[in-house]
């Protein structure tokens, strides 16, 4: 049986149209979502719950024009919209995650109607419960490692400035060129070793406190903000009680003066560890 919990003050947000699906939980409808009815989601639509049996989904009405965004706007506007959707999505997931175990849905998961959500919940109830049990008591922590140029450029091998040849004219240009190449190669090998050691160290430190790990793609591009080159971007699945220990262990691997940085994010809902839930029986 599907029941929709509609806030009284939003009668216009009927259950008929398409709905955006944020997360699924085994909590009772009153325990998640918007206790006061004030939680809003994508396009500031009020969030409500759809319950089927003992599974509850957090949803909000969404207009088709909000979804069909392909090529409709300049890229900057699309990115702004994407950011809005991403933050709204995460805010709703977080609100439930604070209270209970949740399965966060991938961004922009839209069902044509509340009935469709209820059907999905009914068909997938077994898989949803199995997944919720597996993730019970676990949170996701992000651990990123960066390598930057050491704060103080030390020995002669730490940098091989291109201008060296012009500052000090060598007696043999060919020999100087080879020397420079060797120095650069040594510096690169040192850097590679340093990177590998930091990544290994951080992962070893985290693994002792976590039950699972996913490596996300390294962060590059204009949205990437970090103290250097991102060399590890991992998600760890961690018992709630071990979050602080993991944080302490990985940050102990950092040595900013030597260009070794570690950043920790979260705790997150277990976005990176949720397995696909497929519906059965139809």
């Amino acid at each position: 049986m599907t029941t929709a919990q509609l806030p009284d003050d939003h009668p216009a947000q009927g259950p008929g149209g398409p709905v955006y699906l944020y997360a699924v939980t085994a909590a009772r409808p009153g325990e998640v979502g918007a206790p006061g009815g004030h939680l809003t989601g994508v396009a500031d639509a009020p969030v409500r719950t759809v319950t089927a049996g003992d599974v509850t989904a957090l949803v909000s009405s969404v207009e088709p024009r909000h979804i069909e965004m392909v090529g409709q706007r300049p890229q900057e506007a699309e990115l702004a919209w994407l950011e809005h959707v991403a933050r709204a999505h995460n805010a709703v997931v977080e609100s439930a995650f604070r209270e209970t175990t949740v399965l966060p849905m991938r961004i922009a998961t839209v069902h044509p109607s509340e009935d469709s959500v209820g059907e999905f919940l009914r068909k997938s109830a077994e898989a949803i419960h199995a997944e919720l049990r597996r993730l019970d008591g676990l949170v996701e922590v992000g651990v990123k490692a960066y390598r930057a140029a050491p704060a103080a450029a030390g020995g002669p091998t730490t940098s091989a400035p291109e201008s060296a040849a012009t500052e000090t004219p060598p007696e043999s240009p060919g020999r100087a060129y080879l020397e420079q190449r060797r120095a650069r190669r040594r510096a690169r090998a040192d850097a590679d070793r340093d990177i590998a050691a930091l990544v290994r160290g951080v992962r070893d430190a985290a693994a002792g406190h976590a039950v699972d790990q996913r490596a996300h793609r390294l962060q590059t591009g204009e949205l990437a903000e970090g103290p250097g080159e991102n060399i590890a971007n991992d998600a760890w699945l961690v018992p709630r009680g071990a979050v602080h220990a993991l944080h302490a262990a990985v940050t102990a691997c950092a040595d900013p003066a030597a260009g070794r940085h570690v950043e920790v994010t979260g705790p997150w809902a277990p976005y990176s560890f949720v397995r696909p839930v497929t519906s059965h029986g139809g």
Binding site: N90, R106, T109, G142, R214, A235, P267, S272
Partner: peptide
């Protein structure tokens, strides 16, 4: 359970969010 050192209270970086929302976080095929 915020992390120590002022890590968690900051606004979540969009790129970290997108790593999770786009690359993973799916329960639907």
């Amino acid at each position: 359970e915020p992390l120590p050192g002022g890590v968690a209270p900051r606004q979540v970086a969009l790129i970290d969010l997108l790593d999770r929302l786009l690359a993973s976080g799916a329960v639907l095929t």
